[in-house]
């Protein structure tokens, strides 16, 4: 299937600083694609390029298999960095400008403002809103006209816990409608809950990408407990089955090499005459996986 977004080998430099280096990504239709990375990893630059505000130095990107254009951007709801609105205009007028640009009905403003709980403030000037409210207004603008693709850069920025939960629910709701969502976020727990695919950026390069469950399944450690843990440890090292083994109290935390699983450990222990009293595959959180990738 043709991807909704195809980024091919884009690079962007700011003077001597490399913001992005040969980045390639493919975002399929209906997927929720998380872009992760520490500060300065190139997340926002990537999103700014695909939304047309920054030109890449090299490489290309296509939306719906076509070169990017203003007409295509009208079909995409995007929130990049901070909400940008006219401070002296009220909420309804600010959204009217967006609706006109996107060619969407002005009547939709009521729906999106109600969705983000801002309808009661529709006549308030933008500069009278709190940071969280501004972020919610930006989300209203993104949802205006019910676009098929959403590009969200830190959508929960500045929101209180209740606001974060609201945003998560909105994103989940949009994902359930089979919309394509590209999401950059620092809140890895959110990404893990919402995203189907993820790419991890570091210093402008993609260091890992794929389906979230595949990425998390890779290197899942096997945890065992037995009376002869030292014997098991040395035996495993000799066979070359394990990539690393660490002791965690009475337990051994074994990271297996590719192609081996918990079943292999169990069989190997049985062959060695070692009785395992505990065997589990410990699921890594996206956060721990992310931190490991970033450390490498």
């Amino acid at each position: 299937m043709e991807p909704i977004l195809n980024i091919h080998q884009i690079s962007k430099h700011y003077g001597r600083i490399t913001a992005i280096q040969d980045l390639s990504l493919k975002v399929g239709a209906g997927s929720v694609f998380g872009i992760l990375g520490p500060n300065g990893s190139g997340k926002t630059t990537t999103l700014a390029i695909i939304t047309g505000v920054i030109s890449p130095d090299n490489g290309t990107y296509q939306w719906y298999g076509k070169s990017a254009s203003a007409a295509i951007r009208k079909k995409i709801g995007s929130l990049i960095e901070v909400p940008n609105f006219y401070p002296y205009l009220d909420l309804a007028r600010n959204l009217t400008l967006v609706a006109r640009i996107k060619g969407k009905p002005v009547e939709d403003i009521e729906r999106v403002l109600k969705l983000t709980n801002l309808w009661y403030r529709k006549k308030s000037r933008f500069d009278t809103l709190s940071l969280g409210m501004k972020q919610r207004l930006a989300l209203s603008a993104v949802l205006l006209g019910d676009p098929d693709v959403l590009v969200l850069d830190e959508p929960a920025n500045g929101l209180d816990p209740e606001g974060i939960a609201e945003v998560r629910e909105i994103i989940k709701g949009e994902a359930e409608k089979q919309k394509t969502i590209i999401l950059a976020s620092h809140i890895l727990d959110e990404v893990e809950k919402v995203c189907t695919h993820v790419a991890v950026l570091k210093k402008g390069k993609s260091i890992a990408q794929g389906r979230v469950h595949e990425l998390l399944a890779a290197d899942d450690p096997v945890v065992v407990e037995c009376d002869e843990s030292e014997k098991l440890k040395s035996s495993l090292i000799r066979t070359g089955m394990s990539a690393s083994i660490e002791k965690d109290g009475n337990k051994l935390v074994i990271v297996l090499k590719s192609g081996y699983g918990a079943r292999d450990v169990n069989e190997f222990a049985h062959q060695q005459g070692i009785v395992l009293t505990h065997l589990e595959t410990r699921k890594k959180s996206l956060e721990s996986q992310f931190l490991e990738l970033i450390k490498q």
């Binding site: 939304t51 047309g52 505000v53 203003a70 007409a71 990049i80 940008n84 609105f85 640009i101």
Partner: peptide, 12 residues
């Protein structure tokens, strides 16, 4: 106000 930027993002 960074609205030129936002207008381009929105589709101008």
């Amino acid at each position: 106000f960074r609205t030129f930027r936002q207008h381009v993002i929105d589709g101008l």
